[in-house]
Amino acid sequence: MDKEKQVYSMLEKVYDPELDQPLTELGFIDQVLVKDNHVKVVFRLPTYWCSPNFAYIMAEDIRKYVSEIEWVKTVQVHLLDHCASDEINHGASAGKSFREVFHNVSDGDLEELRKTFDIKAYYARQEKLMKYLLKIGMSKEEITSLSLQELNELSLPEEGRLLREKYLEKKKVFHHSSTFAITTPEGKPLTEEEFSDYLKGAKLTRLSMEFNAHYCRGLLEARYNLSAAYEGSLAK
């Protein structure tokens, strides 16, 4: 694999925390430049005002994942056309913490924020899986009593396998000790009575994230005059 492709495959792991989608799919990566063992990743966002904290999370993650490639010596992150471009580009490329860079307007680092959005992504992915399991005929009781092992062993068509994989990937972040497959973000199993209300709440989170993703994609397209053909290639 050539170097640029290697970088892109690492960038697939960088997610917009608010939209729970990879930057590569959102069209946020403008270009990747490789010179010997040095990499520069140029990225862009749908508006000049997108929250600097989310932008910083993305910039940090770009640096972190690209640095994992064996031959990479330095990673320079460059955010275009943003109200905090300078601070973010200098800070993230130098591996500084958010607090160091924005000390006058923040009172901590981004860990809480990352956690908040991990929880949102968890609800959104879980709701999709739960709805899918209901659709293929499982009862509420069967779903709430399902163990992790049983969920893994369920024989599912591709759509279901993908939903399961996405959900379990996010579930790992929380290090739950419970062996139940479907739990709250805190790791508590659901009762059959709680099931419907829980699902309604999770749905609202999923809708909110999906709305944001649609809106942001549209804005990016409007901002950079991306053609329909280009959008098509993103959807591949």
């Binding site: 929250s51 600097p52 904290n53 307007v105 009172d107 924020l113």
Partner: peptide, 13 residues
Amino acid sequence: KGPTITPLNRDAF
């Protein structure tokens, strides 16, 4: 409610 509300390390929205 728009973005960029301090403290910036929290959810701006």
